[in-house]
Amino acid sequence: MNVLLFGITRDITGQSRLTVPADAGINTVAGLKDWLGVHYPGFKQLKSLAIAVDNEYANDEDAIGPAQEIALIPPVSGG
């Protein structure tokens, strides 16, 4: 599963795009957040971390899979 990264999430991972291995068995937003926290403790320091699925904010219980566009949304600061 590919995950798009923006802003500080690129600094935390040291990558411009994240690939979550299929054998991690992630199929929900909450599962992805847990996996991220284990592999990149820097995420726990953030004020918030949202997940977007196909350009919309997703809820923890939402299902995710490789067919969707998934992105990490750290605290926004536009304007």
Partner: peptide, 14 residues
């Protein structure tokens, strides 16, 4: 519109 943009639109500044 400006209040909501600042809360939810995925734009970041460094």
């Amino acid at each position: 519109l400006i209040d909501e943009l600042k809360k939810s639109v995925p734009i970041w500044k460094k």
